[in-house]
């Protein structure tokens, strides 16, 4: 498994995650944030664009060929976080599975979704609240 293939899987996963309704953006991991801190100077020179796989980390187990994909996302508050996270898991899992099969690197896919933040305020009324 080459790094190029892994990066392609991560890009595939990022596209799939961002296509899910309720996903606002993907949040970089600490590893990616540190890399960003070191390479920001290079970007001021116009030599590199923000990484398209930010917020995704993919690994393939060498012995079993199983894919493990981590997604860190920021969600809109219009939907329940659990429902959006489930959709992200399904969408990313299907996309990675299809990509891996198409490119001859198939294997079971596990997707872990982490909600790092929610955005947008939804005014909701809960039961039992009364004015003083």
């Amino acid at each position: 498994m080459t790094a190029v293939r892994t990066a392609s899987v991560e890009r595939t996963a990022a596209r799939a995650a961002l296509a899910v309704p309720g996903v606002s953006e993907l949040q970089p991991s600490l590893r990616q944030s540190l890399a960003e801190a070191a390479t920001r100077v290079r970007r001021t020179l116009g030599s590199a664009a923000p990484s398209p796989e930010t917020g995704i980390h993919a690994e393939r187990a060498p012995r079993t060929g199983a894919w493990h994909v981590e997604v860190r996302c920021v969600l809109d508050e219009d939907r329940r976080a659990l429902d959006t996270a489930r959709d992200v898991r399904e969408s990313v899992g299907s996309a990675v599975d299809a990509y891996a099969t198409r490119h001859g690197i198939p294997g079971p896919v596990t997707v872990v979704v982490t909600v790092t933040r929610t955005t947008g305020h939804r005014p909701s009324h809960h039961p039992g609240t009364t004015a003083p």
Partner: peptide, 24 residues
């Protein structure tokens, strides 16, 4: 970058039996 990561706090499981869905 490190402070932003620490501010997330611990990761909590959402109510899903697979325990693959978490929230900061």
């Amino acid at each position: 970058a490190v402070r932003a990561e620490v501010r997330l706090g611990r990761m909590l499981p959402l109510d899903d039996p697979t325990r693959e869905l978490r929230i900061a």
